[in-house]
Design a protein around this nucleic acid. Structure first.
Lengths: 339, 339
DNA sequence: TTGTACGCGTTATCAA
DNA sequence: TTGATAACGCGTACAA
């Protein structure tokens, strides 16, 4: 393998000059072309490890995610890759399983591998970002907000919950339930708050029995819906606060032969829609749905755009480490948008 | 940050001894404990970049995948991570979009970042593995076979296609169509061959009009099914040769209000099942299905196990670079298994 | 502007 | 077994 000294010898210059040419410093154009052709002739590619050791930072960026099997996060990854590849960085995906321990391990890897930056959707709890921040590494938190002065991108979860609930109410549903995530998850709490706010704004109360805390996965939604349908007074509509819970809800309905209702009765009785049908609202996208989703009140999130925004934030931070911290709330497709 | 010289000074030994202790070489136990407590006291963590530069290989493994948004591949990734994390390696996911150009770029990154090894599900065409193999790096090809002496794991695609088609025939379907991937994709060709073999074994012919080459994605399956239903003599059942095509088929049926049939008429007329229902067989899994899948003839693939097998192959290669090359055909849950 | 020489932090070689 | 030191390949202060 050709090294920098080989290129220098071939071009008749010093290694320093080769290095300067490769890094865009001021060099005599004549020598520069000599160097370039030598690079070409030898097929020289700089050793990234040596460069990283010397510079104190590589051109790899870690994308730390809680669940690589969730289509939401893989779409985020696509958005991140689109931006960072274009800027010459390599993206490394790390799967934490929502486990703070694994998360800490990966953050340690990012630190000790001298990675240029970290994009992270934190597992429940406070991510251990201090070591990275102290070292001046670029860090961007996405999707789940934290109480720290760090660049962040997230959704307005309260508005999402409120918007989706309002849409169901506008369709005539009156007894709208909400299936959200664990009590310790901020996203889950905020979206549920939006739901209750929408109900109260419509002059309805949001009874505790209609708010179910499930896990944020398919089985959580599945079991939660079964529970709701077993209530003495079952809801006439249900709001699933994330994509996986939404999948679970739809599958539970299909398994229980319960139809999807587009519109509620609209009276204040709070009784289920005739025929046992039920309305469904979902915050999120269903790229692998195996049924029609035209009757579902979907609030799409565009996770890919979340990824591009976060990546752009990281690039900005890399170019200007001293810039003030930014916290962006991602705007959403207007409520009422359907697909 | 503490470096190895600090530890050496603290323990009253040389850096060489510290290095030996950390890498499990023979050292006087007494000195070893001194070193360990010095490491503990200083919170010393070896710099992975320097180690990588010196050793010529890091402890990072690249997992190069054609589509990170396909649940099949994310499940593979989980299996890979399970094994490699346990062995002290970090896994880096790389998304090629089935683009040989992107794939080549990532393989270059793996090479020049001195990664310990590469696991790859190649994009269509021959992956550029020579540089890595020439350098003696560990490489394992998974899911899609290549004509080279490299460690590989793949499914018996012909048996998969044959098994799923046979299952449909056993349920009484007689005019079984097949939607497979592009003609340039080996997996697509092999699974389709299995389909035609099963039909011929049952004394039926496999007419060209019932074999559709779509892309291997959801929209491919969707459009292919619409096409099949528009035929003068539509099939009474359809075999989708991968998970995404299966999703597309099921969604097309739902959109077209065509029911899923469990059993065909069983006569040789080749007419569709009464009521316009149609049988469906899918090679793959549907973790995000929003409908019941009990009426679908599913052939589960267990991609996670594929990942663990591939990772194990890589570990074996890393420990014994000179061992003979192995090509493993992953065994499948027996045909007839349903879920 | 260019070249020389050193340093990044670790591991491997060699002599003791 | 242990220690001193060279070497991995590159970037950059310093001197020219």
């Amino acid at each position: 393998m050709a090294r920098i000294v080989d290129v220098a010898r071939e071009a008749g210059v010093s290694t320093a000059t080769v290095s300067r040419v490769l890094n865009g410093k001021d060099v005599n154009p004549e020598l520069a072309t000599k160097v370039r052709s030598a690079v070409e002739a030898l097929g020289y590619i700089p050793d990234r490890t040596a460069r990283s050791l010397r510079r104190g930072a590589s051109d790899v960026v870690a994308l730390v995610l809680p669940d690589i099997e969730n289509p939401f996060f893989t779409a985020v990854a696509r958005g991140v890759e689109d931006v960072l590849h274009g800027a010459g960085y390599s993206v490394v995906l790390c799967n934490t399983d929502d486990d703070p321990g694994k998360e800490g391990r990966y953050l340690g890897v990012a630190e000790h591998e001298n990675m240029a930056g970290v994009l992270i959707a934190p597992a429940s709890g406070q991510p251990q970002l201090d070591a990275l921040l102290d070292r001046g590494r670029a860090v961007v938190v996405l999707d789940r907000q934290v109480e720290r002065p760090v660049d962040q991108v997230a959704f307005d979860n309260l508005a999402l919950g409120e918007g989706c609930a309002r849409e169901l109410l506008a369709s005539g549903f009156r007894r709208v339930a909400c299936i959200t995530g664990p009590v310790g998850t901020r996203t889950a709490i905020e979206r549920a708050s939006g739901w209750s706010r929408a109900l109260e704004a419509a002059g309805l109360d949001a009874p505790e029995e209609l708010l179910v805390h499930a896990n944020f996965r398919v089985d959580g939604g599945y079991e939660a819906l079964a529970h709701l349908l077993d209530l003495p007074e079952p809801p006439d509509a249900v709001l699933a606060t994330n994509n996986l819970v939404g999948v679970g809800v739809l599958r539970a309905l299909a398994d229980g032969h319960v139809a999807l209702a587009t519109h509620g009765r609209g009276d204040s009785a709070g009784a289920p829609v005739p025929g046992g049908a039920i309305g469904v609202g979902i915050i999120g996208d269903l790229p692998f749905a195996t049924s029609r989703t035209t009757d579902v009140h979907l609030v799409p999130l565009n996770p890919r755009a979340l990824g591009t925004t976060a990546a752009q934030l990281l690039l900005d931070r890399l170019t200007d480490p001293g810039a003030p911290v930014r916290s962006i709330v991602q705007t959403i497709t207007p409520a009422g948008a359907r697909h």
